[in-house]
Amino acid sequence: MNQIFVIGAARAGTTAIAELVADAFELELAKGKESHFLAANGIPAKSLGPSGAVFDRSRDHTISEFRRRFRSWPPSGFVDGSTSSLYYAKQTAEALNEHFPSARLIAVLRNPRERAVSAYRYLRARGFEAETLASALDLEKERIASGWPHIWHYRAEGEYASQIEALGEWRARTLFLLYETDLRDNASLIERIGDHIEMTPRRGASIARRNQAQAFRSPWFGRAMEAARSSWLAQRAPEFVRTGAAKAISPLRSSEAPEYDSEGEDALVTLVGEQAERVQALTSLPTRAAWHA
């Protein structure tokens, strides 16, 4: 059985890669946005913060819950994407060793500053984040200590080097991709993934861009829609139902991404330079050039 996990940080392109792999190699994609199962032992039992309850409803705590994301178990092959699995890399490695010892990983890395800003704007667009970026960064350690979900960890989620190191032996079975360069070339990307997972892709597969940070016209409505999207029923609804619902609410979004105060971005410059150096040394990815560090 081909077992493929796409790991990374929130707003780094993991969803697009997971969908591409499932489509190109005709593998079953886990139902629902993200299972977070590999990271389950690292995530607090109860998440707090404005989106904590929404997050807890959508994630899997046990292997039995994870298996229910598929039509039958075991499938002939599957793909799962989880934005928390690299962040909680130690727990991810432990879960892989226990449940999926023959799995292959694909990790997507994005410029830490741009990823953090994207996550911030995503939460602003859905009516969850009320602070300025600068204030949110100041509050980050307090939020983490209080059990807020990983997507609120704007700076910490971008500390890739320590996460990669924590993968241990699984690093050798991980294909590392750069959001800025690798996601732009379909043919080359699919070929590299095929070589990594030792499978031949179907013809005509291409990557899709999803999850744009457009705001709902009403913050209250945005929170309600996010709660509905992450409900148990929505996570297990057929693909055509979820696609139809997404199209139906699309007109309720504004055409522009939400405005924000960019004052806090300067605080992330040091993080970019530090991570570019360390990640390039660990993975041989050209992060210094790609992230202009």
Rank of each mutant, 00 (worst) to 15 (best):
Y154H: 12
W148S: 09
S72E: 15
E34G: 02
R113Q: 15
A103K: 06
R203K: 10
A45K: 10
D80F: 00
L86R: 06
M199S: 04
V241G: 07
R69I: 09
G42R: 05
L86G: 07
N111M: 03
I197C: 01
R253H: 08
S250R: 14
F70W: 03
N211M: 11
R242F: 12
Q163Y: 00
L282S: 08
I63H: 05
S262F: 14
R155I: 04
R202T: 13
V272F: 08
A53L: 03
R11P: 02
I197L: 02
W148E: 03
P258C: 04
S82P: 12
R203S: 11
S82H: 01
A107M: 06
A290I: 14
S206N: 07
Q280A: 05
A125F: 09
Q91R: 11
A166Y: 07
A103R: 13
A289M: 11
Q214I: 11
T243M: 15
F5T: 02
G8E: 11
R11G: 11
A125R: 09
A107P: 08
I190Y: 03
A281H: 10
K31F: 11
V117Y: 09
R57T: 13
P101H: 01
L183P: 04
L105Y: 05
A16L: 05
L177T: 03
I106A: 01
N41F: 09
F128I: 12
A267V: 09
E98L: 15
I190W: 00
F216E: 08
S188T: 08
R121F: 03
R121D: 05
E114Y: 02
F221H: 06
M1V: 08
R126S: 03
N41Y: 10
R155H: 10
L20G: 12
T62W: 02
T83N: 14
L271G: 11
L123N: 11
A40R: 03
D185R: 08
R126P: 03
R242C: 15
P44Y: 09
S231W: 08
